[in-house]
């Protein structure tokens, strides 16, 4: 039986792991390769590495890091952060990344989703969508959730799916860093509407939140960062709990 995936997300800056509360305050939580290896051993189903470095050296250091990760880790991983061209994707996939995720660059130039999917296959193109409730309407935000767009999240999600995205990584900016549970409403809405998997992100605080996002939110995968980095919820415990609650997971 296909299982629900648990995905730790490692935010990377200058080669180190960081995670902010509501993306503002950054805290150091270690070496990404080492942390990734530990997560893989503990039973993480996939990893996401999100590079938030903003220097010109970024691309080269990211490719080097991806090479190190690929040499060490025996589960799939996705790389995101500032990817905007087919060449960026090619370099990262050749270094050993399984998937790449794009966000602002897709909003800026939607046809890049078609181009990347055509060149590398939908299976490795994840479109990340940061969404926030603005006066009762779910609007797509870019630049780490700081910049609102006029795109309605549901329509944008359908569009990227039609353009060839293989998965959607949906982050609710209203829930991110707050630890009060995932955005089950919109996650369920997108998961029911689209023919591709939805990875829910933002809001994990307790093990019950994961159960809710898989059952109520109909998510295919759930992503979290700080609760894993600071060992608030160990992955083996989380999986045992979900199994006990009747959620199919890989043990």
């Amino acid at each position: 039986m296909l299982t629900k995936r648990i995905i730790p997300c490692l935010d990377i800056k200058d080669g180190r792991t960081v995670k902010g509360v509501n993306f503002l305050e950054l805290r150091d939580a270690g070496d990404p390769v080492e942390l990734g290896r530990i997560y893989a051993q503990e039973g993480a189903d996939e990893l996401v590495f999100l590079d938030i470095t903003a220097t010109v050296e970024k691309r080269k250091t990211l490719v080097e890091l991806v090479t190190k990760i690929a040499k060490t880790i025996n589960i799939p991983f996705t790389v995101g952060g500032g990817i905007s061209t087919v060449d960026d994707v090619k370099a990262l996939l050749n270094a050993g990344a399984d998937k790449i995720s794009i966000n602002s660059s897709a909003v800026k130039n939607p046809s890049i989703v078609n181009e990347m999917a055509r060149e590398f296959g939908s299976q490795c193109i994840v479109v990340a969508i940061d969404t926030k409730d603005v006066d009762g309407v779910d609007l797509v935000h870019t630049h780490g959730g700081r910049r609102p767009t006029t795109l309605v999240t549901q329509r944008w999600a359908q569009e990227v799916c039609d353009r060839g995205a293989g998965e959607i990584l949906l982050t609710s900016m209203d829930h991110d860093g707050v630890k009060s549970g995932f955005a089950n409403g919109i996650t369920s809405e997108l998961s029911s509407m689209l023919s591709i998997p939805i990875i829910a992100s933002g809001g994990a605080g307790t093990m019950a939140h994961f159960k809710d996002v898989f059952t109520v939110g109909k998510a295919d995968a759930a992503l979290a960062a700080s609760i894993f980095h600071f060992k608030e919820i160990p992955i083996p415990d989380l999986k045992k709990y979900l199994h006990g609650e009747g959620v199919a997971v890989r043990l």
């Binding site: 299982t3 189903d45 293989g166 998965e167 995968a221």
Partner: peptide, 26 residues
Amino acid sequence: KVPHIGWNNLENLKSPLLEGLDETAY
């Protein structure tokens, strides 16, 4: 949903290639 993405278990295993694994293997 298509593609089939994620971890799924092996069933009806019968081969030396799969020695040491059973239906709990994903």
